[in-house]
Design a protein around this nucleic acid. Structure first.
Lengths: 325, 325
DNA sequence: ATGAAAGCGCTAACAT
DNA sequence: ATGTTAGCGCTTTCAT
């Protein structure tokens, strides 16, 4: 209908939507005008069918086998995922691709996706084996977001080291010069190492008291409890933690000891979790910008699928949380 | 390929997947066997194209215009949405329909969905005008979840009144007989009314001190502050709030006054929000079972779209939160 | 730069 | 209960 209304062939209409440059401006405009008049929206199913692909891009959640520490076991994880989802949709909606969501834990799960999807945006890849598993699927893919060091894979990564620096700056701005840093699982969890390294580079290793006991509220509580006297003497004058929940525990320990969070002792977490509304104190934090990361990832995948040149990797900077809790 | 491998026609293969009952068990099994062997997965695009529909079901988030109180403005809302999404996907994945996500605030937004989707699962409908707007779109739909009283619309609802009763029972079990109930916006927000009514019916209206000042942490704090002397005297011996965040504020007020939450004064919220991990006390709560609600809604819509008989409405019971915070 | 035409995998109407 | 067949809307070769 659009073709006849604009006096061109259906092939030209198709070209207008898929490769506008190959059609003369004159005909292109005629097509757009007719399309607008008729309320024409290209049919994604037909497109996919003819392209002989599924017409579907999958946002793949990589399910982790039981491991020592994994944040997605927190129900709060869902909040993060929802942000990512929205960002990816922003990119896929105007494209010829429909967005699918899936979870996979192993090669078998990935195999099932084979005929069903044209490409993968892989959420929360943080082990080399996962990256390899995905690559082995044979499907086009982009991995995110703790993937900065996975050279050789198309990826979109957060810069945890930069985040550690930002965290340090947050404390410095509050007047801190000799902070404690609470973390854990440094061997197993690369992002934890990166964050710490960034933090140390900004403060100078000698200024920082590293407390490597555990993550979570209770661990944070204990860690801070253990340095109350140093905090009171001023030997330590601020606390950073590898994530918000650990920082929260530290906050309770401070409160318990009669120290006012932020006022007496600046306290910074990481992740910019949304439970601030329920907390009895505010928290400084770092936002890894999940939406930015996966928006980029989606764009990269789309470029690859449509044959446009695309960069192999991209690093997205985190930012200091602008909404104090 | 499946057709020839199993010695039937392609039409029969199609029937096996869309209307298994109309095919003899013998041929049906032959088809399944061949399909498994060949790793056959029906092509949703082709199906949709031929069906002359989009092959897409949309989970529609109803965006509210600025209003006095709306919980989805909380970032915690995303946690809830992620649960719903997962439940709906469980139902749509094995179907011939692909799941889409969209947001709409008005008739224009809905109009844009017209050619793009075959049916709507409408998330978080809580005004009659919204229900009417959706019905006017002409698309098949199911509305959820504060929709119990919207007779005349296909819907899947939570029972807020039953939730109020459950909340009361939670307090009773903790020994409470004369609770305070903190709420607000009773005129504008029907679910708030329903919850209160359920609560009152379980306790008896005379036993309950209703505090209608506001919702949110600060409002909860103030409300509880105002009854500290009654709590200490035993005139009031428990607190319920219309939601968890308000309850949290009340919890801080109790703590502030030297009263131990749950131990001295049982405290119940509503919604089973996931920030318990960060709180310095536990909270009783009611879970409206969002996954259950929208799983049902998706099934109902699918039944309608595929011409199977379907019930017009369904009420899903909430449950007392099994994971104390 | 543009058109003609084939065909992607499926479903539904029709025939048996 | 099952097969035959047309055609959904689009993309892509192949011509021109």
């Amino acid at each position: 209908m659009v073709a006849s209304a604009s006096g061109v062939s259906s092939a030209t209409v198709s070209r207008v939507y898929n490769n506008p440059g190959s059609v003369s401006a004159e005909k292109r405009n005629a097509v757009f005008k007719a399309a607008a008049k008729l309320g024409y929206i290209p049919n994604k199913s037909a497109s996919a069918l003819r392209r002989n692909g599924s017409g579907i891009i999958t946002l793949l959640e990589i399910k982790k086998e039981k491991r020592e520490y994994y944040w997605a076991e927190l129900s709060l994880f869902k909040w993060f995922y929802a942000d990512v989802l929205k960002a990816v949709k922003e990119v896929t909606d105007p494209s010829m691709f429909q967005l699918n969501l899936a979870t996979a834990a192993n090669a078998e799960d990935l195999g099932k996706l084979k005929g069903t999807t044209d490409g993968l945006i892989c959420f929360d890849v943080d082990r080399m084996e996962e990256a390899e598993l995905i690559a082995d699927s044979g499907l086009p893919f982009i991995i995110g977001h703790h993937t900065k060091n996975y050279t050789g894979f198309p990826r979109c990564s957060t810069d945890n080291e930069a985040g550690g620096v930002l965290q340090a700056e947050l404390l410095k701005k509050a007047g801190c010069t000799r902070p404690a840093y609470i973390t854990a699982h440094l061997d197993a969890v690369e992002p934890h190492r990166d964050r710490l390294n960034g933090f140390l580079s900004a403060f100078g290793r000698e200024q920082v008291t590293i407390i490597e006991t555990g993550v979570g509220r209770d661990a944070g509580f204990k860690a801070a409890k253990g340095i109350i006297s140093e905090l009171k003497s001023g030997r330590i004058d601020g606390i950073a933690a590898v994530n918000d929940i650990t920082a929260t525990g530290a906050g309770y320990a401070l409160t318990d000891a009669g120290l006012k969070v932020q006022t007496d002792i600046p306290l910074a977490g990481y992740d910019n979790m949304p439970f601030g509304i329920a907390l009895p104190f505010s928290l400084l934090s770092i936002d890894i910008n999940p939406a930015g990361i996966y928006r980029s990832a989606a764009k990269m995948l789309l470029e690859e699928l449509t044959g446009k040149a695309s960069q192999a990797s991209r690093i997205i900077s985190p930012f200091a949380a602008s909404n104090p809790f």
